[in-house]
Design a protein around this nucleic acid. Sequence first.
DNA 1: ATTAACACGTGAGCC
DNA 2: TGGCTCACGTGTTAA
Lengths: 157, 157
Amino acid sequence: MENFGDEYKHYWETNMFLQTEELDSWGLDEALSGYYDSSSPDGGTSSAASKNIASERNRRKKLNDRLFALRAVVPNISKMDKISILKDATEYIQQLHEQEKSIKGEIMELESRKLKNPSSDFEQEIPVLVRSKKMKTEQIIDYVSSRSLIEVIEDKH
Amino acid sequence: MENFGDEYKHYWETNMFLQTEELDSWGLDEALSGYYDSSSPDGGTSSAASKNIASERNRRKKLNDRLFALRAVVPNISKMDKISILKDATEYIQQLHEQEKSIKGEIMELESRKLKNPSSDFEQEIPVLVRSKKMKTEQIIDYVSSRSLIEVIEDKH
DNA sequence: ATTAACACGTGAGCC
DNA sequence: TGGCTCACGTGTTAA
């Protein structure tokens, strides 16, 4: 009676990617409800039951879609499990939080220093993410010299 | 027979925060399986059914725990719905992605420039998050002069 | 044969 | 009242 289980082609992966079998199930459900409406004494109860069935089915579909969307924004999804998806998403958010905290920590450290130290400290103040540019001494010297080095010397003297 | 529905105290919130009723359900299940084992002709099937019930119950608990953990790492959770939790988590991850992309964009822009422009452009090259330090020209001049300005002049000439 | 993961229908609580 | 959200047990499929 329940679980009229033909066309049980929906494993998790199958249902994830191609979400068919909704129209088919709807058709089957309507047929069944109509059959039960003619046989059972009260038609209102079965109609409400069908409504509840359809609503619950739609709710499940919504939940799976949301899980699919969550899986889409999380990189490096190892397993396709529902539980694994939630686990990977949680760990990924925590990883992003740590990364953000480290960046903010570097900025705070950079902001707190006085930048009036000798040259070795100056190079260490550049954070890791910007260190690729390296702010080499030659570039700084080049910039200063290209600008108005003579004026600088004259100002300094 | 099914849904032996006393102690139905578990709404979503109730089950989320205090996860009792597991030991109680286990006790009830064992009692039921024992009773059915003595009455039904085949005891192996009912035992397998009880095993399946317990496994499924544990799986549901795991899934809810994972959802609870996901909700914990996402700030500004508006509604307590399962679907809303997944939706908020997905949007939060997307927001973090955009933020990270903007930061990397600033770094790339900073890296791509040649640093051979006048001083006004040089000040604009510092990204927003690091701009508090300002890398003023006087400081650079101070650094260069403190290092070995005379050698620089001698090299340039 | 055993197990894990899933979708389904159903009843119950809350608003 | 009806419309939600949820947990539960069950049947099925694949490894």
